[in-house]
Design a protein around this nucleic acid. Sequence first.
RNA 1: GCCCCGCUAGCUCAGUGGAUAGAGCAUCUGUCUUCUAAACAGAGGGUCGGGGGUUCGAAUCCCUCGCGGGGCACCA
Length: 549
Amino acid sequence: MTSVISRGVRASINQALLDAVRTLGVEGEIPDLELGRAKVPGHGDYATSAGLKLARELRQPPASIAARLAETISVPDGAATVEADSGYVNFRLAEDWLRRLVGQVTSAAGRYGARDVGRGERLQVEFGSVNPTGPLHIGHGRGVTLGDSICRLLEFTGHDVQREYYVNSDNLQTRRFGLSVFARLHGLEPPEGGYTGDYVKELAEMARHDLPDIEKLPADEAEPKLRMYAIDKMVERIKATVARVNVRYDEWYYENRLWEAGLAQAAIERLRESGNIKDRDGALWFGEPNDEEEDRVVIRANGQPTYFASDLGYLLSRFEQRDFNRVVEVWAADHHGYVARMKSAAAALGFDAQKLVIILHQMVNLKEGKMSKRAGRFVTLDELVDRVGSDAVRYFYLMRSPDTTIEFDLELAVTQGNENPVYYAQYAHARLANVEATARERHPQLPERADVSLLAQPWELDVARQLAFWPDVVEDAATLLEPHRIPYYVHDLATAVHRFYHAGNAQTEHRVVVDDPEATRARLELCRAARHTLKTALDLMGVGAPERM
RNA sequence: GCCCCGCUAGCUCAGUGGAUAGAGCAUCUGUCUUCUAAACAGAGGGUCGGGGGUUCGAAUCCCUCGCGGGGCACCA
């Protein structure tokens, strides 16, 4: 039992299936038999079309292969019964096993579903990393919540995760930002391409107060000081904003460190030796040797490095100096053109480009029009959280696949209340917490151990069945780096919980808290198992699990 | 012109090449002297953008066309 729940029942069935396939005489590699959830109740809980898939190699009819597999397979712990149906093999989770699972889940509590697939792999997730030239808006909110939940998933599955925000400080945009603050300091309009938001005026006033004599300095001396000052202030603000949506970082890594440590310079030098750095038109370019087509500027003709130069050093910093085995980057889709360049840079520097994993997420648009940071017309993440709350914001972002553009209807978001799915899940959790409290009041001395054999009703076993699926969901979400699988599972589990609870509304003898202490105790065990799992899932989303609502 | 993402129920979206394509919202019909009705039960609603192809089998893979969005800097 222990091994089955720590791996998940799907993995356990899959292993039994592979063992059985061997006994049929399949040599060499076994094709992916795609053991998955059965979609029709009559087909059980898991199903595979193994008979159809192996028919060619075994030169036998699919139905007879499936029949032989069904006879041969022995699922550990009697977790599931097996049945052949034409070319398919169907698995139905055994009721007795489901009952025992409930007790196991309760013992594991918040660790149920945790896996060690990562085996302590040391990796970095870099996400957010917005130019610190303004507050985070609702598009950035998607990136920080997505990145944060990816971290939570990786941590839950045995990875050693470092969460990093890369703070741009030396590029053209941040210099423009510094010049904008300088302009406001002297009562002028920001320069062309500068930042016009009111917060720039506020930063200028703060700088006037905090940086003595700054007004007396000429632009070329004042700008770097004002820039770093303003960036620090913006970083503080960004830290406060992400904290409101439960996002945590381990490291705020400043771009200028790459130059101070000589990493950017070292990267360029190494690429020069490999023939990937070329001199042309007074500038330094990166590209494949003997091919100018895809060349990109690293050092401008005026001697200033581009952001790309810093990024070369940043690769060195992470894959070499800090020795991460893998680096995951979370970017908005408008950077997609940069993916190939970064990967080829990583390869040219001598790293395995596969270890640089780049997750792109699509944009977040306002229904009434596009956002523009420099025009100062945008809805900030803070404003969004003010209006709909952190839990709803996170749930809303995370339930969508990163590939989908979010059309944010602000009017709807404001009026959103009952129809928000986050309340459905939280309510299930609160109900369970409440019923457990009621049980403690009515039965101060319940049996210490639950007799789970008393869990016999279909709605009780349905909750247990959902619990059985949880390790599969965790594995898939962590492996594919797709947190949006979690809210969909949460919804399914919450549905099973509400139905279970409601059976007691329809008929009082089916309540959790009844006169019979043994029945109460058994159902309480199920409540605890479900509540722990709901809480674990909500935690992975960074969404709260309230005890009362 | 080239690259990326999307197109699935009225709306918003799930859907690792498998059997009868799902959920929420919205609409309609029922269920509260309750362990919390922010809930439950039920109903209606589909050319999976169009067309080819691969396959025993395609919403899913390939090609092509259309529509929408995003990129293609000595910006990031």
